[in-house]
């Protein structure tokens, strides 16, 4: 049977959802694969929703909002854009194709543009093939990675950076200085990498208590990397030592909120 991708769309009520309605009213035809979830503003779309949808095997997630400057809520769409940027970086770490998540702007009067974008996205996802974690034999590694990614997207520091990006770049901070965009991007990708690694370690130890050596083998990380993170994670109360085998500590995850 031909591959029919499963695509979930998250659309804002005022522009893109209205654009989708207009495509229908104008009888513009597009592939029937997309299933649309309506939210009031694209700014409402928590990175969690997208990761959760991908974890459950969606082949593609299409996020749509108002064009910059047209947001019904002034700039919710810009928040959506920052979240998408963060997610692209994060998903790239997991081994899942980051292009499975895509953000576009559609206005209420752009029925034809909506249909065109859905068609293009559906074609792209069809070419890409089924999500590696869908179907009978999901790719366990990528699935585990995505679960770690989801925890990462919920990390306090990451959410602060993403939520306050504009403020940090455009307004002066408490010390009266602006953070240059490149600097902030660097900070963000650094935070993504670190938190992601820690969450992989955490998730792995949640299932089974392990030594540093074993962790580094299973996660394909250097022992140095694992060790540095374990030190920090212990300080944060995320990990503890379950037992000592000979001289080797065996670590376990601790309950955190």
């Amino acid at each position: 049977m031909e591959f029919e991708p499963k695509i979930v769309g998250f659309l804002c009520n005022w522009c893109s959802y209205a654009g989708a309605d207009l495509a229908g009213v104008s009888r513009i035809q597009y592939p029937p694969n997309i299933r649309i979830v309506r939210v009031m503003c694209s700014g409402r779309i928590d990175p969690d929703f997208i990761l959760e949808t991908l974890i459950h095997g969606a082949d593609g997630v299409l996020v749509m909002g108002c064009h910059p400057g047209d947001c019904h809520y002034i700039e919710g769409n810009l928040h959506a854009e920052r979240k998408a940027k963060m997610l692209r970086n994060l998903i790239a770490e997991t081994g899942l194709e980051p292009e499975r998540m895509h953000l576009e702007w559609v206005s209420a009067s752009e029925g034809a543009r909506f249909a065109q974008l859905v068609k293009e996205f559906t074609d792209r996802i069809t070419k890409l093939g089924p999500s590696p974690i869908s179907g009978e034999n999901p790719n366990k590694v990528i699935l585990e990675n995505l679960l770690a990614a989801k925890r990462t997207a919920g990390d306090f520091r990451l959410r602060v950076i993403v939520g306050r990006e504009r403020e940090l770049v455009e307004d002066k901070n408490a010390y009266g200085e602006k953070v240059p965009q490149e600097k902030l991007d660097e900070l963000l990708s650094e935070a993504i990498k670190t938190e992601y690694t820690r969450n992989r370690i955490y998730n792995m130890l949640e299932k089974e208590s392990l030594s540093v050596r074993e962790l580094s083998k299973r996660l394909d990380l250097s022992t140095q990397d694992v060790l540095t993170n374990i030190v920090v994670m212990r300080k944060k109360g995320m990990l503890g030592v379950e037992r000592i085998e000979g001289t080797t500590p065996i670590y376990m995850s601790l309950e955190v909120r």
Partner: peptide, 14 residues
């Protein structure tokens, strides 16, 4: 509040 929900999607503590 106008109900856009951007705060909920961004709250670091959820």
């Amino acid at each position: 509040c106008k109900g856009c929900g951007t705060c909920a999607a961004s709250c670091p503590e959820k």
